[in-house]
Design a protein around this nucleic acid. Structure first.
Lengths: 224, 224
DNA sequence: TGTTCTAAATGAATGACGTTCATTTACTAG
DNA sequence: CTAGTAAATGAACGTCATTCATTTAGAACA
């Protein structure tokens, strides 16, 4: 849990910038872990598998990592880097929020196991995540938002994004009532009507919900 | 993964309604599991601990349960039962949605580990959850919504609720930039302003987001 | 050059887990 | 009284993450 001093380098502690032996370092481990995850999903990310992919014994990893959780945090940082938050510099707030949210959800839909982690993780450990927040907050500020309303708006959007990313991993027939059909006419009618549109319901929900929450937030900011 | 035939009883398979020996049954196991969780959190819910709390050996549980995941589903059903969906019968849609969402989030904030499970779980295994959906869908129908818009609206709301429930478990100082302060003026300003309100930011975000998404959805339904 | 220091790797061991299985127990039906 | 059977037992297993005493090898210093 300890943070290295002021150094921004990710490499293990070494004597005055002189390279040291060791096959491993933070960057290497993080990349290898992400590679494993992308190739075979999070269930294949074990310390043994990770060590093997680095041609090293599992215990060697613990010279560079406190726990597996820490590796998950490293992965999270790399993944978070893929979220496009430059849009706030070029687009009006509502459009920027929409574009940002879309990339955010799409990226984390492929990394659902990270979500329960992120939601609870202090941002202090992740400078790049902080930079993202700064860009988003700047977008709100530029649009003239009251300062105290900005954090709640960001958190609300993120909650929706994380929930939607989880939802995106659900099986397509998740709502099929199965043997419990009958006695639920309203729900079944709605289900059938949605099915008839031919659209993926997770995507439709994300789009509709995103438009609603963005419009709703913008409207609220104008009334106060 | 198999479902028992048409029987709606939760008891283990038995001969023509005649009670059989056995200390265990589904209801007992589920209640004991929930009790453990409420007392000590999900990390204390192990098959050994559960068995011990029932004065039984761990392997005995497997005569009634396929896996620990199945127990988690049983817990989920009990917990879901606490969500108040009667409000749709008495309140106008927007107020009902708000009241429903509030109880939904508050309840699952105490059961965060269930969320990644639910988001991906077929509803067919949970009759009571289906009944909830029916009441919600009926509320939308009664309010004159187009059928095909109902499921996406429900899913969007649930995504927001689940995300918010996860967020509610975060530490209060989750946004503290720590040593990374400086260089992120907009974010820090917003953070300070939010702090100055004295409100819990997770709660403020949930309230603001809920109002926004409900208003946004209602507005959208009027334009189509 | 040789000695010492130390970061880093090793491999064996540990302790939780969830889960399986052959066997026993105790009730019920005939 | 005899089977038959659901259910409980306890001793395994296999898979994890993690720990630790020990070894290895490169760099600093003499």
């Amino acid at each position: 849990m300890k943070q290295e001093p002021a150094s921004s380098t990710a490499a293990p502690r070494r004597r005055a910038g002189r390279p040291r032996s060791g096959v491993l370092d933070r960057e290497l481990i993080a990349r290898a872990a992400l590679k494993l995850v992308v190739a075979g999903g999070y269930s294949t990310l074990t310390m043994s598998a990770l060590a093997k992919s680095l041609s090293v014994s599992p215990s060697a990893l613990y010279n560079h990592v406190e726990s597996k959780q820490e590796i998950m945090q490293w992965i999270q940082e790399i993944v978070m880097d893929g979220v496009d938050s430059t849009v706030f510099e070029t687009l009006p707030l509502d459009e920027a929020l929409t574009a940002w949210a879309v990339t955010y959800r799409d990226i984390f839909a492929g990394h659902a196991p990270l979500i329960p982690l992120i939601a609870v993780l202090p941002v202090s450990g992740s400078p790049r995540t902080l930079e993202m927040y700064e860009k988003v907050a700047a977008g709100f500020t530029r649009a003239g938002w009251k300062q105290e309303d900005i954090i709640p708006a960001i958190v609300a959007l993120e909650s929706f994004i994380f929930g939607s990313a989880l939802d995106a991993t659900a099986p397509l027939d998740i709502f099929d009532p199965g043997e419990n059909a009958g006695g639920i006419p309203n729900f079944e009618g709605a289900l059938e009507a949605q099915r008839a549109t031919g659209r993926n319901s997770a995507d439709a929900a994300f789009r509709a919900g995103l438009r609603a929450i963005v419009n709703g937030l913008m409207a609220a900011s104008r009334t106060t």
